[in-house]
Design a protein around this nucleic acid. Structure first.
Length: 432
RNA sequence: GUGAUCGUAGCUCAAUUGGUUAGAGCGUCGGACUGUGGCUCCGAAGGCUGUGGGUUCAAGUCCCAUCGGUCACCCCA
């Protein structure tokens, strides 16, 4: 029995899945840079206030999901529960407002949220995200949404549903919130006890309740989208126009309220039917007050985050990624101990020539070595023993056909290069 | 934080109504005439049955607790 296990809600990504994972990250880096994004890597923990101030004290994330701890210097630190706040903090800290705007950044890395694990939800989970900071142009909203959709397409996902909404801004939202509170207050008796608390704490969240009675009440509640001021309405319409121009199909979902307080104007979410209850595979929105919140100049911004494990699950279910179970090129079989050092020299010479190669390190018999080479899926086996060293000729065996040819020892590397070149892709080549 | 369900070798699973030293397949390792894989055959290693209590003459099988997995709620990626 194993004494140690990965902590609850965490998991090891074993080679089979790790291959798909790396593929997804590689495709993301390719596509994001095509759209002008540059990589950024921020710390995995931040000062706790970073998240309290940006995400919002009344949100579930801050109230019950953060991994917060004191370090030995008495600082309150928190393992980042999301990627946007740290990037904005970095933007302000490094005066990126002085760079040509907008500043486009992408990141990938682990996030941490203390929740009960379930399908597609972990305590340590990975996100792929982007942030475009500096522009309030609705065209960049559309580009952001488009980038996410195109990325999903590029890794083979179909049947995605895109929801969009507008959350208003600091000009029109306060009046709307009052309206919403009034409405909810009038219907207080019909709401569940959680929702009654939400009326004052976080009224937008009233729309999230799964209770039928609450949903019934909220159906007729005033929707933000109907109370946008002229500027926000215009912005939202422009975003829609740009999306329509690119033939992007979306559903306007007035109830879509992302669970982070910093969103303004455009909010969006993509769900996949291939996932379980946790079906949001990516989401994001605009955050025009966030830079100010961190002490920077008034600067608009927008971004999204994609859940890497949810994406990985969906891609797997879609069968969109065929694992290129990397076949090694050459196995060197040592026929007798006398040839061992010659074999090791050959091994490194092969690798020097970019031929993937390996050798037995377990003291197996020749037969055992062949079995091993077979199981590991080598394409060729080279036999090296005192016989070969004396005659100067070595045998190359094609492990698939069983054919064997003899070549002079001093031409072996060139010969192998030649053979490998004219045959199938090897481990050193990538497949899309 | 709430609820449901599960927990036997590395993996997938067995083990009559609680009853002798807990089994199989796959995998791993070794062998089947001395320098050659894939098929077949033989053999070996590997489990204090998640952990801790309890009931019983007797518990993998029943009860309680705890930890963990899975799924759902809350919420989100």
């Amino acid at each position: 029995m194993l004494q140690f296990k990965a902590p609850k809600g965490t998991t090891d990504i074993l080679p089979d899945v790790a291959r798909r994972w790396q593929y997804l990250e590689r495709k993301a880096a390719e596509l994001f840079s095509l759209y002008g994004y540059e990589p950024i890597i921020t710390p995995v923990f931040e000062h706790t206030e970073i998240f309290q101030r940006s995400i919002g004290m009344s949100t579930d994330i801050v109230q019950k999901e953060m991994y917060t701890f004191m370090d030995k210097g008495g600082r309150s630190l928190t393992l980042r529960p999301e990627g946007t706040a740290p990037v904005i903090r970095a933007y302000v800290e490094h005066n990126m407002n002085l760079l040509p705007q907008p500043v486009k950044l992408y990141y990938t890395g682990p996030m941490f949220r203390y929740e009960r694990p379930q399908a597609g939800r972990y305590r340590q989970f990975w996100q792929l995200g982007i942030e475009a900071i500096g522009s309030d142009d609705p065209a960049i909203d559309a580009e952001t949404i488009l980038l996410m959709i195109n990325y999903f397409k590029s890794v083979g996902l179909k049947e995605l549903t895109l929801y969009i909404n507008s959350m208003g801004c600091d000009k029109d939202r306060p009046a709307y919130i009052r309206l919403l509170k009034d409405y909810a207050g009038e219907n207080r008796e019909k709401l569940c006890k959680d929702c009654r608390k939400r009326i004052d704490l976080n009224p937008l969240r009233l729309f999230d309740c799964k209770e039928e009675s609450c949903q019934l009440v909220m159906q007729d509640a005033p929707k933000m989208i109907d109370y946008l001021d002229e500027a926000c309405k215009e912005h939202f319409n422009k975003v829609r126009q740009y999306l329509d121009m690119q033939s992007i199909v979306y559903i306007i979902k007035p109830e879509l309220v992302r669970g982070l307080d910093y969103y303004t104007k455009t909010a969006f979410e993509v769900v996949s039917p291939l996932l379980g209850a946790q079906n949001a595979i990516g989401g994001g929105g605009r955050y025009n007050k966030l830079v100010e919140e961190f002490g920077g100049p008034p600067t608009p911004g927008i971004g999204f985050a994609i859940g890497t494990e949810r994406l990985s699950i969906a891609v797997d279910k879609e069968g969109a990624f065929v694992s290129t179970d990397s076949k090694m090129d050459v196995f060197i079989a040592i026929a007798d101990e006398a040839a061992k050092s010659a074999a090791i020299n050959l091994l490194f010479a092969l690798r020097e020539a970019k031929i993937s190669a390996d050798i037995d390190y377990m003291g197996r018999s020749l037969k055992g070595q062949l079995k091993y080479a077979d199981k590991r899926g080598f394409k060729y086996t080279v036999f090296l023993g005192s016989r070969e060293l004396e005659s100067g000729k070595v045998a190359i065996k094609n492990m698939e056909t069983g054919e064997q040819i003899e070549v002079p020892l001093n031409e072996l590397v060139d010969k192998l290069l030649e053979i490998i070149k004219q045959n199938q892709p090897s481990i050193s080549q990538t497949i899309d």
